[in-house]
Structure formats: structure tokens, C-alpha cells
Nucleic acid binder design. Sequence first.
DNA 1: CTGAAAGCGCTTACAG
DNA 2: CTGAAAGCGCTTACAG
Lengths: 355, 355
Amino acid sequence: MKKEKGEIELVGVKEIARRANVSTATVDRVLHNRIGVSSATREKINIIIKELDYKPNILASRLASPGKYNFAVLLPDISSETDFWQAPLNGIQRAAHSISEYGIMIRMYFFDLNKRKSFKKQSRLMLDSNPDAVLFAPYFHEEAIQLGNICTEQHIPYVLIDSNIPSLDPLCYIGPHQLRSGYLSAQLMNYRFSSPSKILIVNIAKEVDDLNNLLKIEEGFRSYFTKHKSQHKIIKIDIKSTNYLSVQAEFLEVFDLHLPQAIFVTNSRVSAIADCLEKHGKRKIFMIGYDFLTKNIEFLKKDLIDILICHRPEKQGYAGIMKLYEHFVLRSTVPKLSFMPIDIITKENFEFYDN
Amino acid sequence: MKKEKGEIELVGVKEIARRANVSTATVDRVLHNRIGVSSATREKINIIIKELDYKPNILASRLASPGKYNFAVLLPDISSETDFWQAPLNGIQRAAHSISEYGIMIRMYFFDLNKRKSFKKQSRLMLDSNPDAVLFAPYFHEEAIQLGNICTEQHIPYVLIDSNIPSLDPLCYIGPHQLRSGYLSAQLMNYRFSSPSKILIVNIAKEVDDLNNLLKIEEGFRSYFTKHKSQHKIIKIDIKSTNYLSVQAEFLEVFDLHLPQAIFVTNSRVSAIADCLEKHGKRKIFMIGYDFLTKNIEFLKKDLIDILICHRPEKQGYAGIMKLYEHFVLRSTVPKLSFMPIDIITKENFEFYDN
DNA sequence: CTGAAAGCGCTTACAG
DNA sequence: CTGAAAGCGCTTACAG
């Protein structure tokens, strides 16, 4: 460690104040576009700021400012059916940690994936806490639109993660481009099967709303084959029970009927299918599914799942909070859309994956 | 923005000092393990720190401390042959930007990939600048070992990126697990070719040193087939000219002789091969190569390259600097090895890739 | 071995 | 509309 004060020229509020013949308080007012400065003074100071190419010291700024922000987050509960939401939660906590010194408090709210009402209830609780900004996963379509609209009314910026709702106008959407994600999966199928094959698409979702997202993925998947004139035979099944046993029963019936050569499961529930095939001693089948979950990785290791597509859920949570931080603290403009990478995970690279 | 001072209990040096009946200066001494404190006092203070679960305010710490650090970086020049090194450079600049307020200055040094001597020369220049820490890409084996050893002698922590040298003891290595990267590529080949096929491995590198890295990838690639008893016929060629035309001439000879069904190029020079096939109107061949470079992406789009493997070069640069920052400013322990994800890039997901 | 005081660069409450 | 002064939490040079 060396002291090299001399090296860096000090252009701070003091220097600006000195040049403008005003106090630092006035400089501060101009810097933050606060009222109570004559336009002559404001003008003069602004010119000096430009000249000096002044960059505020955020450390000092945050240290001096008592300003605190409350962010609120509404996510699905981590359920026994899937621990997918653990990852965004981790990302949010990582972000919370890294900006905690900037006076940002994050309050968490959780809803039950199987209970539409709990989303509403938690939304209300969240809004009652008077958050300065909000991040949520718009799992239930109608309810999410309502929540988004209330936020807009109350001038609370909000960020959407995991899936987007086009009719809303959030500060930012962070998540996958679902259509393209399905498209990619189809390309991978084509790598494996250059000749026409029988492919089974499996959608597993209790609520029709969630199904909507899966349908976008399915649409992308199908459109690839259409575009590339692939002659695969595509069968599909929508399973609306989330319970393990009934998922497997419904699946097995269709499976035994059609005996497909490949399976594409449009969400993280792919392990339920893999498990089913294993339990019933079915022969190995090429299978693509979604998400880096412990259960899924187990089947990847055992060659029952071949490929998992992932959209960096941890990063979605992290980036979501950071966008809010950038908006509030750094006052920078954040891009409206932030698509996550569509990552391809196999048995041979999952160890190195970073969520 | 709200003032909610009351909400947060203040556990700072002041409170510790108050409880221990000492001055904040003494608390500071204990906090940083400085000399000049009686062991009784030190003990007492340490207990209070534990009790309070005190976390220092880094903002205030950095603001108060005049300490400045000079980091130095030695990377290959961005050449006309490949712009691979642009990405780590971008990452380094991003890191430089995000920690500039912590008093960290980063000086850059560049060497010529084709001139062993320039590495030596720039190493010397870099060391002459008396850096507090160093980050470099150990491109030339012997010279890199020398540089690493000098750093160790002079107690300058250093970080290695892109490729590792096992005999050195850097603060941290950040880059791919090359063996596993080759292994993954072989798995992807097997997805495409379930029946025995003829596969051509192409190594392109002027210096034997660089070739060493490629050979690790090749080794991983071959070992996958061995382990899975794949009956592919593997041919390989080492091209030691980096010049475009001679690369293509050498390649074409082998290609026409063996007419392989697939090609695996072990580094970013894969575009040279794709270009050659295109120019000579060869039929489409399955090709896997390395790195997210503009040229490579062009061929990905045109279906001349099928898969690019990438190791997040931008992140390597960013993480490299951040490790140094964590070491110096946060004084935290950094893990010795930080393997990058092995990403699979195709025509259908490259748009969303984040380096 | 220890402490009082000044200061890092910015912000704010208060007084005028 | 403007400024003097105090303070954010930590560090340091100096004095004892």
C-alpha cells in the first residue's frame, strides 16, 4: 500500500465550489437537480462540472446520505415439487449483501405456486410495506397484471424475472427469450436425430397461466422443425397435475402408446419423467429438459437426461436487484429487456456451470 | 428516499471503543492486526467484535484510507490473426471501472503472440513499474514461469488467466479445465455421430508452448472416446504456421487425403478452417471449434461451424482483477482455482451469450 | 502501548 | 437563494 495522493488531481465538490465562488451545499443542490438555486448560479456551476468532467465519489455520497431504500421481492415459495426458486432467491441475497452498505433493505414475500390466492395476498402485504421498488415473478397472469398496474399507479418501479408479460411496462424484464429457448432445444434434437423420429413434448403445469409460458417454449420448438422442414412426428401431452404419482401415470400412458425416440420436457419437472422411465425399466431415451436442479442433475449423471437448458436463475435474481440499485442509487438508465443466455448443460459440463 | 436511521443499530468502531473503554484508534489497530496493542486490550476488543458480529463499513474504510494499489496486467496484443484477447481486456476494464473508486490503478502491458521476446520485455517493463499485484496470461511457458517466480520472490501476488501452469503458485488461476473442455467436445461429437465416423483434429499454433494447451484439449477429446469405446477413426494435424494461407494449404492437403466427416479445431482459429472449406466449395461438414469471435460467429450463422465452445474470456478478465481486489481491499481468502464454465454456443443461442 | 484530533468527499439540517 | 457547520464510519499522523 502506498500513498500517492499527489498522483490524483482532486476534483470534488470543494474544487467546484471554489471555482464557482459558492459553497459546497450549493454545488450539491445543482448536482442533484434540487430546487433553491438561482439559474445563474446553476448555470455557472454546471459549466464548471462539465469542464472538470466531475465524477462524484459514490462511496462518500452514500456514506454521507442517510437515504435508505426498501426493496420488496415476491417469489414463489420453494416447494417440495421443485426447488427451482432457490436459485433466484440466492441471487437476490447475493445482491442484497453486495449493496447492503448502500442503505438498501430487501424484504421478501413468498407465495404458493399452487394457490392463486396466495399471490394476491402476498402482493397486498408487500404493497402495504411501502416499498420503493419491487421485483417479482409474474407467475399468475391476471394477478401479475394487477400488481404491475398498481405499482405503476403508485409510481413504484418494478422488475419482472423469469417470464415476461408484454402488456405490462416494468422498469425491466430479466429472463429467457422463451421462444428462442424452445427453438434451440429443437436444434439440439436435430443434432441427435438427422432422420425423421418420433418426439414427445411434455408440458407439466397445474395452472393454465404457467402453461402459457411452456406453450411459448413449445411453439419455438415446433417452429424450428417447420422452418427446417424436419419430418419428425411430434406428439404432445399436457399434464395438469403436479403431484408426482399422477404426473407419472398420465405420462406413462402416452409413452407406452407412442413409444417415442426422444422426449422434450418444457420445464424443470423433467426429473419426474426421468424417474418414471427409470422406475419402470424403460430403455434409454434421448431427453431434453429444463433447469439446473439437484434432482435433474442426478439424472443427467445417470444418462437418463441428456441435456438441460438453463437460463441462469441465480443471475436473474441478482441482476434484478442490481437493476433496481442502478436505477435508484446510480440513477442510470436500465435497458428494458435483459435476456438471459440460453445455456446447454450436459453430463460433461455441469460441474463448471455457474447458475 | 426515506430516513430511517432508527431502524439500524449502529455497531461501528465507536461502539466497540465505548464498550472496551479504549479509543477508536486502538480498535482500528486490532481490526487490522497492527502492532502496538497490549495483548490484554487486543483480547478484550476481539471478544467485543465477536459479540457484536461487527462488519466494517467498507465505504467508510476506503474513503478514509489513502491507500492506493497499482495492479499491472500483461496480455497478448489484439492481433489481426485473432481478436480473442479483446474479451479479457474488456473484462479487465469493466473491473477497473467498478473498483476505481477504491483507489485501484491498473496499468496494461501487451506482448506480441508471435514474439517470445516481447513477453520478456513487457514483463520487465511491468515489474519496473512496481505493481502491488499482477495479472497475466502465461502464454510462453518458460517466460511465464520466470515471471511467476520473480513475482513470488518480490512478494507480488499474481493471477493467471486462460491457461494454467501447474508448477507455479499464483494467488489464483482463472480459466478453463482444458481436459474437460476437450472431453465435452467429444461428447457433442457423439451426439451427432452415434456410429463410427472419421474425425479430424486440427491444432493450429505457432509456438510449441501454446500447442501444449491445445494438446490438453486434444487429450480430453480422445479420452472420451476411449472411455466410451467409440470406434471413431481419429486423424490429426498440427499446423505450426499462423499465416492464413499456409494454414489453409496445410489443412487442405490432409483434408482431401482423408475426407473426414467431422472436424474438431482445438482453438479459436476454427474460422480459418471454415473459410477454407467454404472457399473451396467443400460439402458441409460437422465442425466444432473454440471461442466467441466475430469471425467464428459469422461461420456459425452460415452453418459452416456447428458448435463453438467458450470459456467466458470476458469474465476471466473481470474475475481476475476482482480476485486481486478481494485479496487486497477485502482481505478475503480467494480460492486457488476458479474454473470457468464450458459453454456450448450454437447458431441458435449465440445472440444471448454473455462472454 | 494508547488517545485526541483531523480528515476522506459528500450531504443535510438549520439559519439567514 | 445561499452558506457555515456538523456528520457519515473509518483511518492516520502525531503526541505522549
